[in-house]
Every structure is written in structure tokens, then in C-alpha cells.
């Protein structure tokens, strides 16, 4: 093995953890932005229901929330555990994947029904369904590192 190849291999070993870290951060950034979308649109929905803002974009908020929910499962497929600062996903997300993914699927199904109801009957029809359609806390309590 000539010196150049040896140097190349040594460099690769040294650089690899840095690149792996960068990839992990990308994975965490991706899912955090998807969850951020859900958080923001959920907050907007709650503002509409509370009568703080007009209801004319109610359906759009639910549609966006539904879209983000459909993005969530894929965003969590790569197993990158958070530590509470750079990421917030607990290891249980992956050790208990069947339950976690089922909860996301259920959330997507419920939001699809909520969107349909909102499109058909606006706040009057979909408003009463919101509490049972959004189970953010149920999942966060089990799968998210508590905020510091």
C-alpha cells in the first residue's frame, strides 16, 4: 500500500465521524421542521377556534396540518436519537416503532377526516372534532425528550 492510499484511508477515518454527524443533524433538522410545521398550523387552528382570528382560512390550516402529518412518518424513519438539545426524539421511537408508526398513521387518518369535515361544513362541523382528532400530547409524552 503506497503512502498516498494510506493517507487517504487515514483521512477518511478521521473525516467519517464528522460527516456522519452532519448527516444526523440533517435528519434531525428535517423532522424538526416537519414537526414545527405541525406545531405552527395547530396553533393557528386553535387561534381560529378560540375566536382570536377570523375563520376564513380554517380549512387551509387543517389541510397544511394534514400534509405535514403525512410527512412525519418518513421523517422519523432514519434512526437518529436526539439528546434534547440538537434533537428531541427518544430512542423509544425506534425500539417501539410499531406503536409509534401506528400513532402517526392514526393521526393522518383523523386529520384526513377533519379536513373533509372542514371542507364540507367549516368550523361548525369540524370544530367539535378537533379535540379528538389531534393527539399530539399522547405521542410527545412517550416519544419526545422533555423540553429543558
Amino acid at each position: 500500500m503506497n503512502r498516498l492510499v494510506k493517507c487517504g484511508l487515514a483521512l477518511a477515518v478521521l473525516v467519517a465521524p464528522v460527516m456522519a454527524h452532519a448527516d444526523d443533524q440533517d435528519v434531525m433538522n428535517y423532522r424538526k421542521n416537519v414537526m414545527k410545521t405541525m406545531g405552527e398550523q395547530n396553533a393557528l387552528l386553535q387561534m381560529v377556534v378560540a375566536g382570536k382570528v377570523p375563520a376564513d382560512q380554517f380549512v387551509s390550516h387543517i389541510k397544511t396540518l394534514h400534509l405535514a402529518a403525512t410527512q412525519a412518518k418518513k421523517a422519523f424513519e432514519p434512526k437518529v436519537v436526539g439528546d434534547g438539545s440538537t434533537g428531541s426524539a427518544k430512542a423509544e421511537v425506534w425500539s417501539n416503532w410499531a406503536d409509534f408508526s401506528k400513532r402517526i398513521d392514526d393521526q393522518v387518518t383523523k386529520l384526513a377526516a377533519l379536513e373533509k369535515a372542514a371542507a364540507e361544513g367549516g368550523v361548525a362541523k369540524a370544530g367539535p372534532m378537533i379535540a379528538t382528532s389531534l393527539d399530539c400530547r399522547g405521542c410527545h409524552e412517550n416519544y419526545r425528550v422533555p423540553k429543558k
Binding site: 433538522n29 428535517y30 421542521n33 416537519v34 414545527k36 410545521t37 405552527e40 398550523q41 396553533a43 393557528l44 387561534m47 382570536k52 382570528v53 397544511t64 410527512q71
Partner: peptide, 18 residues
């Protein structure tokens, strides 16, 4: 009113970031 528009812009920020 401010919270409402800021949350919409944050949604855009998150989705444009991804």
C-alpha cells in the same frame, strides 16, 4: 394578529427549509 402572521411565516420557513 401578529402571532397569526408570524406562525404562517414560520410554517413557510420550515417547509422551505426542508
Amino acid at each position: 394578529v401578529i402571532d397569526y402572521r408570524e406562525r404562517i411565516m414560520k410554517t413557510l420557513d420550515a417547509q422551505v427549509a426542508v
